[in-house]
Simulated assay, not measured.
Amino acid sequence: MNTLIRNVTATDLDRCYAIETFAYEGDEAATREKIATRIATWPEGFIVAEVDGVVAGFINSGAAFQVEMSDEAFKELIGHDPAGPQVVIMSVVVDPDYQGQGLAKRLMGEFIERMRALGKTNIHLMCKKRHVPLYAGFGFAYIKPSASDHGGMAWHEMVLDL
């Protein structure tokens, strides 16, 4: 398995959208338009794992000076500022056909290093309860249950200080 982790390009849009809709339940998946906005607005915060030439997973994010995790508008990068020291991850997804191969771990490790290299101070994310231990393994600290009901789901806020 030949894996390359790289910044997203505009040509990755359809594949990223397909993975997003496979990986997330119901309304929690980002729309094609939101993914296109994330690609166009801050490709430095959007990395993909390419396996044998096929995009198999990705992480996308935005940056801000102030973070309010339940702010739904931020998912469209309203309030995003590339100079902001805080990063908010919006999606961590791996195509089901590529799960169980350590891709999410490789993506997250690379993402954290890239954010450190950009001089960011911390990374925020929301996840389902079952994923809290996964992110804790990367050094994320549990903050609280989130006020967000994105996609009609219960979410939990976590942060990693860089």
Rank of each mutant, 00 (worst) to 15 (best):
G100D: 02
F65G: 15
L13W: 04
E50G: 10
P82I: 15
G152W: 14
D149M: 08
P133T: 00
T3K: 07
L125E: 02
W155E: 10
N122C: 13
A36H: 06
G79A: 08
D14C: 02
N7H: 15
S148P: 06
P43I: 02
C127G: 09
K75N: 13
Y24I: 01
P133S: 02
G151S: 10
K128S: 14
L103I: 11
P96D: 09
G139E: 08
R106W: 06
D14W: 03
V8T: 11
R6M: 04
Y24V: 03
L160S: 04
Y24M: 03
S91L: 05
I19Y: 13
R32I: 07
E25G: 08
G45T: 15
G119Q: 07
N122L: 03
H156V: 06
G53I: 06
R15Q: 15
G57T: 00
E20T: 00
I89D: 02
G79T: 09
I143S: 08
C127Q: 04
E20H: 03
I89M: 13
F58C: 01
M1Y: 08
Y17E: 03
R32K: 14
A73M: 09
T3G: 00
T41V: 07
G102Y: 07
A29F: 04
M108Q: 11
G79S: 02
L134W: 02
I123L: 05
I47G: 07
D97I: 05
M69D: 14
I123A: 03
A36L: 10
R130M: 09
F65S: 09
A29L: 08
I39H: 12
E50W: 01
T31K: 05
Y17D: 05
M108G: 08
G137M: 10
F140H: 11
Y24R: 07
V88N: 00
T11P: 00
G45E: 13
H80C: 05
L118H: 10
E25F: 07
P85W: 12
A141G: 10
C127H: 02
T9Y: 07
L77W: 11
Y17C: 03
A36R: 15
G152E: 11
T31W: 03
A56P: 14
I19M: 12
V92Y: 12
V132L: 08
G119D: 08
L13G: 01
D71C: 05
V8C: 07
